[in-house]
Simulated scan of single mutants.
Amino acid sequence: MSVVSCADQNLIPVERKGKHLVVDIHCHLNVSAADGIVQVNYPGPPPGINEFSCAKTLEVNRAQFGTIGATLNGVEQRIKDMDRLGIDVQAMSPNPGQYFYFTDADIGLHAAKLVNDGIAQAVEANPDRFVGMGTVPLQNVPMAIAEMKRCVRELNLRGIEISSNVNGKDLHSEEFRPFFAAAEALGVLLFIHPLGFTQANRMTEYYFNNLIGNPLESTLAVGHLIFGGVLDRYPGLKICVAHGGGYIPGYWGRMDHGWRARADCSEHCQHLPSSYLRKLWFDTLVFDKDQLDSLVRTQGADRLCLGSDYPFDMAEPNPVEFHQHLCDGDKAKIMGLNAADLLGLTLRT
């Protein structure tokens, strides 16, 4: 297994229990200590969460968090679930509700450090089963860069989870360029995971802010990185996008046509937009095997990683079984080897 890792990190030895190494790249851990710090100064839910949810959705969400609270905040049950589901390693990233971009920078940094320390502690206690990804206060880019370096160099975290926008500012904004430059230099994985849609006034019913909004946000994030020239300027970035990359893998032809036909579409983007998709990685959280097959066909098996969204109700309930129809070589890459390369894992001998 070839492995690509951050320059300053050693490889993490892991074991496989079955025929293939299984690494779940899309799992979340909540660190309640960070919530406590933020709630003192910013009581209530994060902006943009409840504003676009109807009463029925809020009711279902309350019931969900009542059910998964211990699992989301701890590791004992999650290890049992991993054994039951055949998951060798979870790449734990923060609960997206803990980005805390909406706070002032000092509180955001304090909260991010608590989240990152909590994830690092969970990994340290279970080094055979977990690898960690952190969060950074992107409302202040110098602070975000410093905390990203701490995550990589001191906590041995292998990725940074970021949202699809920062308080409504898209990722191609010039102010975020130093962050992407630092991430490229560190060789650290960026895991893009949205938190609903920012302007979801027509998505309040039927959980559309998640069902439609999350993939749409991922689509916009990827689109801005491509058309805004970020991927041209920082070609060495390692980026994995949640939810199968959103809608962009299924409708990239329209982007390519716009790039050919319109000067405003090609101003900052040097090549066909679709050509950049193969520079990214997507998780396989698409729920339908035909859609998974389409991803394999268009994206390639070497650019996909098994992802479940554990422990939320929008998780793939049986992620290993979901990939069983694939050919053996594709299965090995998607279920574990690609994530191992991205996260700096190696099979224990």
Rank of each mutant, 00 (worst) to 15 (best):
S2K: 15
D8P: 09
D8N: 12
I12M: 05
V14G: 04
E15M: 15
V22A: 09
V22L: 01
I25E: 04
L29N: 01
S32M: 12
A33G: 05
I37T: 12
V40S: 14
P43M: 02
I49L: 13
E51T: 06
C54H: 12
A55K: 12
K56W: 06
T57I: 15
L58D: 02
N61E: 14
A63T: 13
I68N: 00
T71L: 11
Q77R: 12
R78S: 05
K80N: 11
I87S: 02
D88T: 05
M92Y: 09
P94S: 02
Q98P: 03
Y101H: 06
T103K: 04
A111S: 05
A111C: 00
A112M: 01
Q121G: 11
V123I: 06
A125T: 02
N126W: 01
R129K: 04
F130W: 01
F130I: 00
G132T: 05
L138A: 04
V141H: 10
M143S: 15
A144F: 10
A144C: 08
M148N: 03
R153Q: 12
L155P: 05
L157H: 02
E161K: 10
I162V: 10
S163D: 09
K169C: 09
S173G: 09
R177N: 11
A181C: 10
E184Q: 10
A185K: 11
L186Y: 03
V188R: 04
V188H: 05
L190D: 01
L190R: 03
G196H: 00
T198K: 13
Q199M: 11
R202T: 12
M203W: 06
E205S: 14
I212K: 06
I212Y: 11
P215N: 00
A221H: 03
G223N: 12
G229P: 06
L231W: 03
I239T: 07
C240A: 13
C240L: 13
H243P: 00
G258T: 09
A263Q: 12
C265Q: 14
S266D: 11
H271F: 14
L277E: 06
R278N: 14
R278C: 11
W281L: 07
D283Y: 03
T284I: 03
F287N: 03
D288N: 07
D293M: 11
D293Y: 07
T298Y: 15
G300Q: 00
G300T: 02
G300R: 00
D302W: 07
L304H: 03
S308K: 03
F312S: 06
D313E: 15
M314W: 06
V320P: 05
E321L: 13
F322M: 05
H325W: 06
H325R: 11
A332M: 06
K333C: 08
L337I: 15
L345E: 08
L345S: 09
T349P: 15
